[in-house]
Design a protein around this nucleic acid. Structure first.
Lengths: 209, 209
DNA sequence: AAGTGTATACATGTATACACAAACGCTTCA
DNA sequence: TGAAGCGTTTGTGTATACATGTATACACTT
């Protein structure tokens, strides 16, 4: 039960929607639950805070993040900026072998598309592409932003209703990459993310107001 | 002596070049120095780790980051991406009053340009612009990336040799903004950052062998 | 002589105990 | 009835003590 293990467990619950945004995270409660003292719990909370999933206020404890629709919009804008740039760099480093691998991951993710782990498959696909850019830090930043989004997607139960369109975007991106149409692949990705953003924000505003 | 205070103090030393990249940060040593136990030290190190200034390895302690020229290049590319986007958004929200304030900060930063706190003035100028974009998270990400850069600039003592050009860039950006030439302001900023990047990386490779 | 195993020293990780700050409820007074 | 003041209570923050993991040096084996 290391702090990393605990953080990982909590991260999973956050992203699965078990812990909803704004939930208080009591140190004593978590310590009892994981059967450890509060020290490793504090470390775990700091790890999650570093990832932006938890907010810590001095002397007032930690709670899961709670963002306004505007803040979610900003995060998606950042994702568009960083992911489109990453895709562009990846396209420049594309090889036939890499393309094959990407399409393999895409097909596998299609199967999970209906289940509860659809987000994992989705990310596996995007990561398979982004990896080729060879940008560790950028990828880490993208992943952190994405985690935050997933937290809210799970919380507001906005499973993409237009699943076919969503899978079709993936297919289209691969096809564009195969043909060397970088520009169009990037534009497709941008639309993909825009769609996710507007969908989530609509659900949030509907749920909040 | 809260963890935040300690982190702030260490951050200052890191960015001033007192603590060079790769320095080991012993918990007991820091605890003695700040006159506290190791617990708040651990918290402070986690805060700095979250900011990307310190690396923590389980059971092996913390040390200040040590980046390769390639990683520095990636960081500057990210800064260009995020800062140019931020400038564009700021330009869209520009007002005469804001412009006046920006120029005021610019003039003030010109005075500090020769001293040891030149980095603070430089950042004050850029931040004065970026603020207008109203993007908290993006600004925080830019600031984190910038801090990392400053750490290496200080370590390798690469005070801009071409100070006039550097200050001239600031002046040019303001002038373009005043005329509503967003496109050109963005391009000037990009060149500004590119210049800083190539300069630092050249110094690093020269210093490293 | 080179490599490996082991013992010792040292740094980090964790648990317990205590100090302190904030939130809550109660009493009391206007 | 409402509000302000004060003690209680709950939870976080920190110090101390102990457990565990890692590095170094030395002895031993090959």
């Amino acid at each position: 039960m290391t702090p990393e293990t605990i953080a990982s467990e909590l991260r999973g619950e956050l992203m699965a929607g078990v812990l909803r945004p704004g939930t208080d995270l009591s140190q004593v409660e978590l310590a009892q639950r994981f059967g450890v003292s509060r020290i490793p719990i504090r470390d775990a909370l700091r790890i999650l805070s570093a990832e932006g999933l938890v907010e810590i206020e001095a002397n007032r404890g930690a709670k899961t993040i709670s963002l306004t629709p505007d803040e979610v919009r900003e995060i998606y804008d950042l994702r568009i900026l960083l992911e489109c740039d990453c895709l562009q760099r990846a396209a420049a480093a594309m090889t036939p072998a890499a393309l094959e691998e990407i399409d393999r991951v895409r097909l596998k993710s299609d199967l999970d598309a209906g289940g509860p782990d659809w987000a994992d498959g989705d990310w596996a696909f995007h990561r398979a592409i982004y990896q080729l850019a060879g940008r560790r830090r950028q990828l880490a930043m993208i992943e952190a932003l994405r985690r935050t989004c997933v937290l809210f997607v799970s919380a507001y139960a906005t499973m993409p209703t237009k699943k076919p369109r969503w899978l079709g975007d993936h297919d289209a991106i691969v096809k564009h990459l195969r043909r060397g149409e970088t520009e169009q692949a990037v534009r497709k990705l941008q639309g993909h993310l825009e769609g996710a953003a507007t969908h989530l924000i609509a659900q949030m505003t509907a749920s909040l107001g």
